[in-house]
Every structure is written in structure tokens, then in C-alpha cells.
Design a protein around this nucleic acid. Sequence first.
DNA 1: ACCTGAACACCGTTCAAGT
DNA 2: ACCTGAACACCGTTCAAGT
Lengths: 242, 242
Amino acid sequence: MAQQGDGVRRAPLSRERVLRAGVALADEVGIAAVSMRRLAQELGVVPMALYKHVANKDELLDGMVDVVIGEFEPPDPDLDWKAAVRRRVLSARRAVLRHPWARQAIESRTRRTPAVLGYMDAVAGTFRAGGFSADLTHHVMHALGNRIWGFSPELFDEPRGAESPAPSPEEQQAREAEFAQRYPHVLEIAVAATQGDLSGVGGGCDEQFEFEFALDLLLDGVDRLREQGWTSRAARSAVAPG
Amino acid sequence: MAQQGDGVRRAPLSRERVLRAGVALADEVGIAAVSMRRLAQELGVVPMALYKHVANKDELLDGMVDVVIGEFEPPDPDLDWKAAVRRRVLSARRAVLRHPWARQAIESRTRRTPAVLGYMDAVAGTFRAGGFSADLTHHVMHALGNRIWGFSPELFDEPRGAESPAPSPEEQQAREAEFAQRYPHVLEIAVAATQGDLSGVGGGCDEQFEFEFALDLLLDGVDRLREQGWTSRAARSAVAPG
DNA sequence: ACCTGAACACCGTTCAAGT
DNA sequence: ACCTGAACACCGTTCAAGT
């Protein structure tokens, strides 16, 4: 039964629809709760039916990342290389922030799909057009690392959703005193980051500022190398001549 | 039966032993194959027994990362800040390379254990001792990101273990031609990276060189900021005055 | 009081039996 | 030829029943 009974979900399955449903489900319940079975249920379909559109769960996740990449906006082609890279990466960032699971999915995927390669090619092409050698472009891409996807790793804890039942004020104070003694420098930079508001260590720092700080540091750094005609051959032989 | 029958595994369980066994198992079979049940079996113990030493699987993984952090070697205290950070990070890199699963485990963990905080405190302390303000130190740590753990993200495919049955030479050539047309810049930088040896795109690049390139780029960049007396307040008001 | 086997509520994926 | 229910070989974790 329920074969043609409920009549609500009649749109035929397709890879596109499976992937979009995967993205929507991950947006709603988090990536950890996305399973083949749960996704099938969401689509009103038997789990096995998904296997006609994706080979396995890995391919599903790859495809979901591709959907996010599809949301990246290409920058105005008239921009100079630095502005173009900035815009492209900040557009990627907006997409990744819209899909909180995407960061972890991108980090754990190793498969390079056409969408992934296409994006990397566009970024590399921007550097090449800006006068970077293929050699330097390669190293620059490595230096940017996952920042080309618009995110940098979480250094500190994610803000916690009150999992422990709120310690008493005096216990809280004792804990902070111990923290200050054991990790004085971490405390210090957390204070510097939040101008004194310590609601959860590391909780209140301006991630967007950090991202752009690091991005510009890297772009300015490689710009300088480009101007100097840096090559990896010269860099290697400077360390180990011969 | 087997309660006292086999006599081989009699060392009493402890958190230490559980974590070390977890590390050894992950080294052997990969992190994906590490399950509570499998680990218990490896220790000659019923799965439930592990729960006396770790609260759950998340805590097991956190503990395993802590074991790896325990292998980091603190640098000679007489080194200047840049050399000290370099040594520390490169020591972390050696440990992470010894445990290939550690990279992914560190990326996916969000819990900040005492071991994690202790290491971050040491790195932050090195910058502070080198004349960096707490403010700049904070931004520098963010810019380094996961590179303080000794790894940078994989940009290209991991070398694949012949999963497809080796295409025919002409098919291989057709595939390469299509790749060259669709992703010319990716191809170009792959060629530049490997000096023409393209056994698997992106396969043969010198990751250690890339890592040190990016590390030095960042350290030199922040050194310049330190000399200039950079502050985030000034940087912010340069963008949006007032 | 301690320990643990069985059970619960899931997984991804295969495959044989049905139409 | 197509489709799919049941099954396989797993998970992490709970809990009640046993000693």
C-alpha cells in the first residue's frame, strides 16, 4: 500500500531532485542526520530508489557539495586579479555560510568533481590573468587552501548550546580562575578579541574580520612575490644550493 | 566462557590503554573502521566496558587526538619567536603525518580539551614573547588556522589506489585531452608542480614544500605587521572611518 | 554494588524473489 | 526487464536482569 495511495509526492525522482532534497535536509537537520534511509523517507520513496541516481552515499555528499558550488557567483570580469579573487572567495563564503554543513562536507570530501575542478580552474585562471606564473599560482592556491572555499578552520569552540545545566556563579568563577592560570595567553587573546566580553571563551570573535584579515594577508604576500619574480626553483636553491 | 579462559589479555583497562589502543587501531585500519565495538574486540573486552573510561565515541576521538598532541615536541626555549613557531608547527606536522587519520579527526573535532588548549597557549605565548600584541596574536592564530596543527587542506585528489581497472591508452589520452580543454589552468599548475610528470593530476606535488611556503608567507606577513604596529582597531577604521 | 548480554533504534548496501 | 521487501552485516548506546 501507499504505492499510489497518498498522491502527494508524485514528481519523478531525478539526480537533481535527490541532491536538492539532500541539501534541504542537511540545512534542516544537519549533515550527521542525513542518511540514505532518512532522505528516501523525506522523498516518499524506498531507500533503494536513491541508488538509481547516486552510486552510494559518498556520491550523494559529493553531489550536495556541487549544489553549493553552483550557488557561487562569478565576479565581474573587469575586476583586477586581487579584487576578482576577493569577490569570488567572499561569494563562496556567503554560500557556505548559508549551508552550515558545507564546511565540514568540503573538508572531508576528497573526490574532485567537475564542479570542484571548474571552480579551482576559475580561481587559478584569475591569478594567471593577473600576471602570476603557473608555478607561483600553484603555490598560492596551496597557501590559500580551504580559504578558497570561503571558510577558515574553527580555532576555538563553537558556541555551546547550554549542554551543562549552568554552573553556580562561584563555581563559574573558580573555573575561570583556573583557566586564567593554566592558559593565560589563550585568555589574553580571547579578551583582546572580544574587548572583555567573555561569554564563553572564543565565543564572540568577528569571524568575518578574521577571514578577510587572513585573505588579505595572503593576497598581499603573494602580490609581493609576484612583483619580485619569485620562483620555487630559486626558493629551493636558496635553502639548499646546488 | 572466555571469561578467564584465554589468559592472553589480562592487563586491566584504563582510559590511557583505551586511547592508545584507539590510536593503534586507527593507524592500522583507518579512522572510519574504528568503532566502539571493534575497539572493544581488539582489547578482548565487551563493548560496554569501554564506557567506563570514555563517556562516548566523541570523547574517544577527542582523547585519541590528545594522544597525538602528546607527541608534539616543545622547541628549544632559546629560539626567537619565528624559529620557535616554525619548530613547534613542524613537530606537530611530523606527529600528524605519523597518524594519517589525525588530520581529519582534528578538523572534525570541536571540543577543546586541556591538551588542545595547552598547545594553543604555548603557540600564543611564543608570539607574545616575540613582541606581538594580544590583539595581533589573536588574528595571527586565526590566519594560521589549522596550519598550527601541521597540515594544510588537500587541494587536489588524494592519490587513488587503482579503483577503476586502468583505462586503455587511447581512452586515457581522450580523457586527458578533455581535461586540458575544460580545466586548462588546473592542468597548467599541475604541470608546473610536477615538472611534467602527470601520473594522476595533482598527485606528485611536494606537500612539505607547500606547507613551509605558506607558513613562511604567513609568518613573514605578520612580522611586517608587528613592525608596523598594526592594530585591528586601526584596520577597521581604515575601512570604515568613525 | 557491580557487570554484561540482550535489546533498541538505527546504518549502507546487497540480492533474490516477485511482478 | 524492472522494482523492491527482506536480509546482511554492521553501528552507538541503554537497560534490565543476573551475580
